[in-house]
């Protein structure tokens, strides 16, 4: 079976990124300006705008993606997320100012449990939001995962990781990726994540020791391995049974050049040049990623219904969880 599929994998469909640093820089400057002038209230609109730009400049088979999210939606989510955080912090502060160790421990516990309970919710919400607001050739992505599944996957994995002193972490990450990616629909196309926790564990072990032996130089190859593990294990299934596989060809050397360049840009522009680092990173990854295998770009059919809430988009932001 493998041989025939390999034959099919020779056909490739390209991703590409056509955004330019100077353009994205201008957009982010306007965003920053408006965010400052409005004391931060503009942030959701700013975020929507930069996502709209980045999606518009990301192409698959020559057609750009479209981000449909709006600042208004994200603002509502932002306010809700902010509310949740204010409540959690109020509890924690109450404990701190109560001057009582017992109360402090309890409120701290509530605070940490609250955060822990929020993460699966945030991930689930973010997947739903981001996918429903993304379209390509008019076909929307969608997320069909159940929140309860996300909770069980996350909480079981979290505690197993603690019990095994972190070793289970690799399997946990893979389980979580499966939960997220396997539930994505791209019209009538499905995605599968086929990575294996053991492989990820080996990448980590190898990355850890080699990085020490090479005084950190291997870190770039380690990063490349992780990138390949996350991207190259995504399989795209079409309704007629044909499939293709994402292939990222970024090399360790390229990761090194990208990282060093990005650091220099950030340092010498006092952080103002961050938009350039974003477009550099996007270019490197997207221009080196293809779908190899049979992918019929004309055969996608709309399967999503109209969409709703944006609560959790901002929550992931506040918790600093970067997934996509």
């Amino acid at each position: 079976m493998t041989t025939t599929l390999l034959e099919e994998e020779k056909q490739t469909t390209h991703f590409s990124f056509t955004g330019r640093g100077s353009e994205y820089f201008a957009i982010e400057i306007v965003n920053l300006l408006l965010t400052i002038v409005t004391l931060g209230l503009y942030y959701p609109w700013a975020k929507a705008k930069s996502l709209q730009y980045l999606y518009r400049k990301t192409e698959l088979a020559g057609t750009p993606f479209v981000f449909h999210g709006t600042g208004k939606e994200m603002f509502k989510g932002f306010i809700k997320g902010l509310g949740v955080f204010i409540v959690l912090y109020a509890i924690l502060l109450y404990g701190i100012f109560s001057e009582d160790t017992g109360t402090l421990l309890i409120t701290y516990g509530v605070f940490m449990l609250g955060l822990l309970a929020l993460i699966p919710l945030a991930l689930h919400g973010m997947m739903r939001y981001r996918t429903s607001r993304t379209s390509w050739r008019g076909i929307h992505l969608g997320y069909r995962g159940e929140l309860s599944d996300m909770y069980s996957t996350y909480l079981i994995g979290f505690f197993l990781t603690i019990l095994t002193l972190g070793i289970y972490g690799s399997w946990f990450v893979v389980k979580l990726r499966k939960q997220m990616i396997d539930n994505v629909r791209f019209g009538n196309v499905r995605l599968r994540y086929v990575g294996d926790g053991g492989d990820l564990f080996l990448i980590h072990v190898k990355g850890y020791f080699f990085s020490i032996f090479t005084l950190g130089i291997y870190l770039f190859w380690y990063t490349k391995n992780l990138l390949h593990f996350y991207v190259n294990n995504i399989v795209v299934l079409q309704e007629d049974g044909t499939y293709s596989r994402l292939q990222c060809h970024v090399s360790g050397w390229e990761v090194l050049k990208l990282t060093v360049g990005n650091i220099l840009i950030v340092v010498f522009t006092l952080g103002l040049g961050i938009p350039f680092t974003t477009t550099r990173t996007m270019s490197l990854i997207m221009n080196n990623t293809v779908m190899s295998g049979h992918f019929d770009a004309d055969a996608l059919v709309q399967t999503e219904e109209a969409y709703d809430s944006a609560t959790y988009e901002s929550m992931t932001d506040m918790m600093d969880i970067g997934v996509i």
Binding site: Q52, K57, V66, G138, Q302, Y307
Partner: peptide, 20 residues
């Protein structure tokens, strides 16, 4: 917004029609 060599226009309610 943000059109380049390609101009993308979208129309109507979900599911939107589009031209490029």
């Amino acid at each position: 917004e943000f059109n380049d060599a390609t101009t993308l226009l979208r129309y109507g309610k979900f599911p939107q029609q589009s031209i490029s």
